[in-house]
């Protein structure tokens, strides 16, 4: 019956406090999906401007950051973002928390670049003409005016990810959450996106397998088996994580690899 539900005016929007410090609080959070315990016993207070997340595939990194913009709701415990419980503000959360996906092809919704950027503005109530001219100005400001009329499918991998990030930034989120945004990019594109992200005013939470991208961050979380294994400065966490990987990298002669 969700089809027939009228869009409710967002009465809860006022409960957001964009200046909340810490901006995200997780209390005893657990997440169960299709019978699997994906996350458990996670308690965190996030207030740093730049937070990195590391961990092996399947360790719960992606689920953890999906809790922050309401793509997932915790099955136990509470998540509060900008002072509001994500369970009650789920639909309005994307206004404040932008999300960049790992694969740009999974994120882009529209055939052309300009439409992709304009979408965020129409989501916030802009008329079509306002949105299109706004999108043009925004693209121009980021040196991408020439990409505007192009079909998204024709862009290079780096351009695609750049447009995906801009499509989120145009909505002026207070927090930007990125799920391995560089994993499909070549060296040059990685550096460009890295510089773009570094220059942003927004608070950033980014998952990365490329540890060098996180060395200048304020804090790094290490996820393992759905739990927080280590939490601290990149100088402490990154070497420990790397050492752990090295110790486990040799495939045993007998016994179970992987």
């Amino acid at each position: 019956m969700a089809f027939f539900r009228k869009r409710q005016e967002n009465a809860q929007a006022s409960s957001f406090n964009p200046d909340a410090d810490p901006y995200a609080v997780l209390e005893n959070v657990g997440l169960e999906m299709t019978g699997h315990q994906v996350l458990q016993d996670i308690s965190l207070k996030l207030s740093e401007r730049r937070i990195g997340i590391v961990g092996l595939n399947g360790s719960g990194k992606s689920s953890l950051i999906r809790l922050l913009n309401g793509l997932r709701l915790p099955t136990s415990g509470d998540v509060r973002v900008f002072g509001a419980d994500t369970k009650t503000v789920q639909r309005d959360l994307p206004r404040y928390v932008g999300f960049v996906f790992q694969n740009p092809d999974h994120q882009a919704i529209f055939p052309t670049v300009e439409e992709e950027i304009a979408f965020g503005l129409t989501q916030l109530g802009a008329s079509k003409t306002e949105a299109v001219s706004g999108a043009r100005v925004f693209l121009e400001r980021h040196g991408c005016a020439h990409l505007g009329p192009k079909p998204f499918a024709d862009l290079s991998e780096g351009q695609k990810q750049l447009i995906c990030i801009l499509a989120v930034l145009v909505m002026k989120p207070k927090l930007l959450v990125l799920d391995e945004p560089m994993s499909s990019l070549d060296g040059l594109a990685t550096r460009r996106i890295q510089n773009l992200i570094a220059a942003l005013d927004q608070r950033i939470i980014m998952i990365s397998h490329d540890l060098s991208l996180l060395t200048s961050y304020d804090r790094v979380l290490w996820m393992e088996g759905g739990r927080l294994r280590m939490d601290g400065s990149p100088q402490d966490v990154l070497p420990a994580y790397e050492a752990d990987i090295s110790a486990r990298a040799d495939i045993p002669v007998d016994g179970d690899a992987f």
Binding site: R7, Q8, E9, N10, A13, N69, G70, L71, R91, D92, P94, R95, G98, F99, F101, N103, H106, Q107, A108, I109, F119, G120, L121, T122, Q123, L124, G125, A126, E130, G134, A135, V137, F138, R141, A167, V168, V170, M171, K172
Partner: peptide, 29 residues
């Protein structure tokens, strides 16, 4: 892929957008 798109759409406010109009985000020259 349909699942992924649905998630991407949700991440930017869903098919119907946000209820309130907020023009403070509009980029102007």
């Amino acid at each position: 892929m349909a699942d992924n798109v649905a998630e991407a759409l949700t991440a930017r406010g869903g098919a119907e957008g946000f209820g309130a109009r907020d023009t403070s985000v509009l980029p102007v020259r």
